[in-house]
Design a protein around this nucleic acid. Sequence first.
DNA 1: CATTGGCACTCGGACAATGTGAGTGCCAGC
DNA 2: GCTGGCACTCACATTGTCCGAGTGCCAATG
Lengths: 337, 337
Amino acid sequence: MLEDRRLAVLRAIVEDYVSTREPVGSKALVERHSLGVSSATVRNDMAVLEEEGYIAQPHTSAGRIPTDLGYRAFVDRLSGVKPLSSAERRAISDFLAGAVDLDDVMSRSVRLLAQLTRQVALVQYPSLVQSTILHVELIRLSNTRLLLVLIADTGRVEQRAIDLPTSMSEDDVALLRARLLSTVLGEKCSELAGRLAPLVDSYDAALRPCVVTLVASLLEATADTVEQRVVLGGTANLARNRDAFAISLEPVLEALEEQVVLLRLLGEVSGDVTVRIGHENPVEDLQATSVIATGYGRGDSVVAGVGVVGPTHMDYPGTIASVTAVAQYLSRILDEH
Amino acid sequence: MLEDRRLAVLRAIVEDYVSTREPVGSKALVERHSLGVSSATVRNDMAVLEEEGYIAQPHTSAGRIPTDLGYRAFVDRLSGVKPLSSAERRAISDFLAGAVDLDDVMSRSVRLLAQLTRQVALVQYPSLVQSTILHVELIRLSNTRLLLVLIADTGRVEQRAIDLPTSMSEDDVALLRARLLSTVLGEKCSELAGRLAPLVDSYDAALRPCVVTLVASLLEATADTVEQRVVLGGTANLARNRDAFAISLEPVLEALEEQVVLLRLLGEVSGDVTVRIGHENPVEDLQATSVIATGYGRGDSVVAGVGVVGPTHMDYPGTIASVTAVAQYLSRILDEH
DNA sequence: CATTGGCACTCGGACAATGTGAGTGCCAGC
DNA sequence: GCTGGCACTCACATTGTCCGAGTGCCAATG
């Protein structure tokens, strides 16, 4: 009971602070929320909450603001998920339906999510490792140069130019192409290494170096350290909240330009929504931000992540709802594929 | 002679202001540059320069800062191009040489240019319209669904999923693929419309709707309004100069997220370097910035643009040198292709 | 006649002093 | 355990003062 009220106070503080971005005091709190107790009581509760580390004062004689721990409690125990309006759902659906190819889907998603949440949005391309191969094309650019094009069932298309150690004739290439196709078609990318070994072995000394080079390139293109791509959008939204990143948003922008960092943020997504608040964040330069991420995919398997990065004082219920919704629609699009 | 000295004063003002970012006064000027005259004389010159609109005072009793017109005069008449150090040239060459495909070249270039200039860098993908077709692939995803993949000699690969009006058999697709290939191989993308018309006509009523759909999709993919892509990097560099965009860099970031805007910035590049200073800029939200752009391509034809966006008080000679150098190396890479 | 030193003047910004008020902690009474 | 009351604290806004960098103008100079 008493515990309940204290949590209600915490919730009120978080909500007020998120909407006003100013430290909230006991008096303002009882005015804006019908807590049914006086400001003095709230003050006592606040003292306890501060003791327990959920809230803090920027300085004496100021109101309280939630700590990372406070937001964590809010997210875990106090907030529901704010459902999207049907107009919003409609907008998402319409907007994504107009995409002409995977690149388009990705860039539309990221813009959409940035706009919905008014934050920085991240969308990861479907992982190749999780995909199966729909087609492989080998194009002869010159005697000693091939272009390898790889098409996955998720819509991803990868390309690599390959410099051959010895020259290959049109016929050599055509044959290799056919054999390659029959070997890898419909295979999971993660299985490729095993599948391709016999192919290499079946070649005699003359062409073998070429085949080795080709296979190496193919494996490299599907290696999971290389093939991951994340697109990002809505960085302008960082600037709007610039007071939030009081000192500078430069390190934040800098961090967000690193693919490696983005991958870490989306790296461990699952079907559920992951919320990382402030210092919970693995990336040092982003410890003043919160990251909300989830996975999407066809059926049950998660093939990539999607999420947003924003100030810790964000609208968690709303943002979680938007991220979830976009992930859902992305999954649907992949399924229809 | 007298005119000469006045220009020397202007140059000194620009250089000092660019390096210190503080209004520069007559006294500081004679101290830091050996102009051979007293501060009083410089003051007189400054009064004239202000009269003519090259410099301005933020407020009375402050030093002078260059106006857009002042920078313009500086760029046109006063500054040489600062040659890159050989270490820098080496770095560019090495860095770009490591790229494995076109996407990689683009993203490396943009990072490189951002780092060299410490500003926001833009690199445009080689225009399809200017390219010739190296290969076309048609992949049957289902009875009524094809994947079209287009490979250009510049290394660009475009893809489109196509929903057919009626179903097509494996054989139909194989035949169409072969005919399509022989029709468009080695053609300029700009010539496609004319080339494809007879192909459509040669089909009878049964498959014609499918072919029409396919051709429409192909033409749409190569239409110059759609196919243009610009990648951007180094936005963190904006934040470092944040005082420059005194009010807010939000509109700037927002503008830079629009592909349309980026295309306008790089739209009219030629072999020469284009410098747009402040209000000379066509994009309203970028009128506090300067844009330096140039083109790159294979041989003489310019196939795309590359450039940077930064505060008006940038190091013009150095930036121009970097942009030029990166464009040169990009051209070289395309040529080697 | 361009250049110069001198001088009065302006005004932004830094600094100190002051007042205000939101917010707190604590306590005695219900 | 809640409440009203009260003394206390401190960030912040306001005001006033001062300083100096920088200016424009002018009379003197070679």
